[in-house]
Design a protein around this nucleic acid. Structure first.
Ligand SMILES: [Mn+2]
Ligand SMILES: [Mn+2]
Ligand SMILES: [Zn+2]
Ligand SMILES: [Zn+2]
Lengths: 136, 136
DNA sequence: TTCAACTTTGTAATCGTTACAAACTTGAAT
DNA sequence: ATTCAAGTTTGTAACGATTACAAAGTTGAA
């Protein structure tokens, strides 16, 4: 488990309380939250927290490569700590996004029909394990 | 080339002028346009056209399975006529979305890690053929 | 202790989209 | 042909997510 303050210092980002809490949240809850989910999760802890701060902070972290912003499904931006490419699965019932242990190097840096491919995403949708159980 | 009016009648949708023009556009220009792109393309032809009509019409067509709404990249909704699953490629320079002649039946209706998969998307990004040529 | 640089905050603006109600169009019944 | 109800289009307002902006607060080096 990485030391959040060290991570920030390595990127020359001042480890303010808000920044540390936001990055800790992303590190500890690997749930691909939206900006609003992060705000809701932290505002009890930091009652003065502003949603603008969450957006500013996520932007800073993303620009510095600490986080990745993903637009995989349904026109929403999700953030995650880990940057290794992997397959995503979104449950249509509970809206959670899961990482799947599937890798793919499918098409990476290839030319297809003359187009140069530099990024590739495999996105799956369905009903997740725990919703299947509940639904009986 | 299908008769647009027939298509609408088969789905019990009154073939109003606006609806016919919008569907004709999607049939003839397979460019995965956004609602706004469709509006911009048609407003010269139909000066009274309202953006609300474009949205209403796209919703009707999508609900009736005539069109598919795709949220593949960058938080934008794109519409297309053809519904056979296929791979998409978005050019980061010109923002066009291309269909690729790659099929995949990867994971379809399988269970992965206990999750039931019902939809799957393969989305690629890069620089398209014609932008590569220009960039030369 | 001071002060400039940086960070956070609240408010307003923006963009894509939806809600809503008024105006218009259509076609079947008279 | 006229009427009228149902369906369609339109313009405006509302909405939610995000960004712009400027004021207020914080920090750390001189
Ligand atoms: Mn992930
Ligand atoms: Mn397509
Ligand atoms: Zn679920
Ligand atoms: Zn291009």
């Amino acid at each position: 488990m990485q030391n959040i303050i060290e991570v920030l210092k390595e990127h020359n980002i001042a480890p303010s309380m808000q920044r540390v809490k936001i990055l800790e949240y992303l590190r500890d809850y690997k749930t691909h939250p939206t900006a609003d989910m992060i705000y809701q999760a932290l505002v009890n802890d930091i009652p003065t927290l502003s949603k603008t701060t969450v957006y500013n902070t996520l932007k800073t972290f993303t620009e510095n490569g600490i986080l990745v912003a993903l637009s995989l499904f349904d026109n929403e931006v999700r953030y995650e700590y880990n940057t290794d490419p992997h397959v995503h699965f979104k449950c249509m019932k509970c809206n959670k996004i899961y990482d799947l242990n599937k890798t793919f190097d499918l098409y990476k840096n290839e030319f297809i029909d003359g187009h140069k491919v530099t990024e590739h995403y495999v996105n799956l949708k369905g009903i997740c394990k725990s919703c299947l159980k509940e639904g009986k």
